[in-house]
Design a protein around this nucleic acid. Structure first.
Lengths: 343, 343
DNA sequence: TTGAAAGCGCTACCAC
DNA sequence: GTGGTAGCGCTTTCAA
């Protein structure tokens, strides 16, 4: 059933039917009701393609996910974030177009999506330090919001992020204050913006206390389980093994725990472990008791917010820059786990 | 730059330019080359909306993800599956439209996507036993492929699945043959098709060996970390605690391990743990050594395959039914972990 | 081998 | 308050 058919069926013009359905004020109340009833009876819903061709708006937002390798697991954060965003979109009649691309093709994908009229705006995922996508999007005039930030990128842009630096500053400081001096850091790939900030937090906490971190204990890599295992194993085998471990993701922590187990060590007794959990934006200690907890939001909620930001920037493009920062609040859990006996 | 502009720029008609770009044979070779050069020079790419309005094909596939609760984490399997599917789509010029919906609205979403002309076909995720979506999609004539299966659903349909029943049959049998008699099962929600099959495999292994499973040890729930923790805790506290545990997902296994740790028990020594890992379609034992490994594919690869299935069924709708089954092959790892001392 | 023109389904402008 | 009509950018007959 299309508009024309519905109109002839009702003995009205397409114009009137369209107006009635789109809430234009000048339509007679009776007419509007009659039209609406008929529309839902016949299950009529306007063709998106035709509508967007006529209006010039595509009513869709693009999410472009960069994946480096063929084997890389999609970051679970993306999934929940997108799920949250999707809720907002469907509530507002928008579609979500998902593109998963290698880092090379990314720019091309953005401009294609735009010039093809497929999307009205995009969300940028996984920003790297000095990311050139941002400048490029500003240049071609495609509205966007960044999930995360990109340091060293000139010019204003909208973004939504958690406070990665501070979270790792606090977690590290907590461990140092417990007496730890040899703390390992299993970080993400350090060309990613979030990983740079976490590293910075790690270093800041040391520096503020006048302690020299052992750079040999700082690792960086794709946050897979295998990485957690392989990065930690040699550190544990060394004569000067770390007494504490700061993990950048749940998944690499699983690998790290395997390495700890195989080395004959016991968590909490021999080595302390704090893992950053993106999903709930909190940090956990070795016995998995929440230690840092975000007050504001989960990743899903962040996705919702980010979607609202892009939709708002579509309706008022020259609105002042919206920057939202989700703070990982410091909340000591009931049990913070024992200080390691080996200290 | 649109077709009209490009055409006038070249001093040709829109028709000819369109034909040249779309590979119609009747175009003069020189003309075609000239057109193609100009197109890439000016970065022309046809407007998707307009094209699909004209052709009647939308060049997009919908993925509809059902999420039960506001809080449920998006199943990581979906993410990687979709990433894989996305690769296939972009290689073939298709868009991927993602809708995340509550179980109630699902049917409406499908028929809307279709009647709005937003998609040419859909992938059905997370099928439940006797899922009525399948019958509904057949009725409205929207091409689809199911990721998973739905038992008790009449009529043929295309699907792609792993062998859940057999995987759990084998894992359970393996534990029984090691001497375990009290095996706990932390299953997913048992209205989901995959969970029913896993449960069946668990029961089959017992029955074939003439052993009565303790139904008090069989749990079912949303596969979150909290669920793994809360479901296992009372079982461990009981006087007749399980000596082995079969976990339906990595994430609930994390919670289960926490419960084990808190109960003062040690993995492998006091209790054996086998976890099903969807991503690599393998099962792991307590020390994380792969025990069952899929020979054919990861979830990502499955996504690619599923996308190929739907695209193929678009071009030839009355093709014989394609059913593909990914087998979780039984491969004993180098180390299968010690039999529990408590036996 | 090329071009003119009719539509795809809808919105939006201008008349009435 | 309602209707005619001109597009939106493309594909696809039909003519030349």
């Amino acid at each position: 059933m299309n508009l024309k058919q519905l109109a002839t069926h009702l003995g009205l013009s397409q114009t009137t039917v369209s107006r009635a359905l789109n809430g234009y004020p000048e339509v007679n109340r009776d007419t509007r009701e009659r039209v609406q009833r008929a529309a839902s009876e016949h299950g009529y819903s306007p063709n998106r393609r035709a509508r967007s061709l006529a209006t010039g708006r595509s009513m869709a937002i693009g999410h472009v996910i960069p994946l480096r390798t063929q084997h890389e697991m999609m970051n679970p954060v993306f999934a929940d974030f997108i799920a949250g965003a999707g809720e907002t979109y469907s509530r507002n009649g928008y579609d979500l177009i998902l593109s998963v691309v290698g880092p090379r093709d990314e720019e091309a994908v953005y401009s294609e999506l735009f010039s093809k009229g497929a999307v009205d705006g995009v969300i940028v995922h996984g920003p790297r330090a000095g990311d050139n996508r941002i400048e490029m999007l500003n240049r071609i005039g495609l509205p966007f919001v960044v999930h995360g930030r990109a340091s060293d990128t000139p010019g204003p842009y909208s973004w939504l992020d958690i406070n990665n630096r501070r979270a790792f500053d606090r977690a590290t400081g907590y461990l140092i204050d417990l007496g730890h001096r040899r703390i390992a850091l299993l970080n993400g790939l350090e060309d990613m913006d979030f990983a740079q900030r976490r590293r910075q937090g790690f270093l800041d906490a040391h520096q503020r206390r006048g302690i020299e971190p052992d750079t040999a204990l700082m690792c960086s890599g794709e946050m897979t389980e295998m990485y957690g295992y392989e990065a930690l194993r040699p550190l544990l085998a060394s004569s000067e093994r770390p007494t504490a471990l700061l993990c950048s993701s749940m998944i690499s922590a699983v690998g790290a725990r395997r390495a700890i187990h195989e080395a004959g060590l016991e968590l909490a007794r021999d080595i302390s472990l704090i893992t950053h959990d993106d999903d709930l934006s909190y940090l956990r200690n070795g016995s998995n008791v929440p230690m840092f907890t975000a007050t504001k939001s989960s990743v899903r909620e962040a996705g919702r917010t980010c979607a609202e930001m892009i939709l708002r920037s579509l309706s008022s493009p020259d609105l002042p820059l919206q920057t939202t920062m989700l703070e990982a609040e410091f909340v000591l859990g009931q049990s913070t786990g024992p200080a390691p006996a080996s200290l």
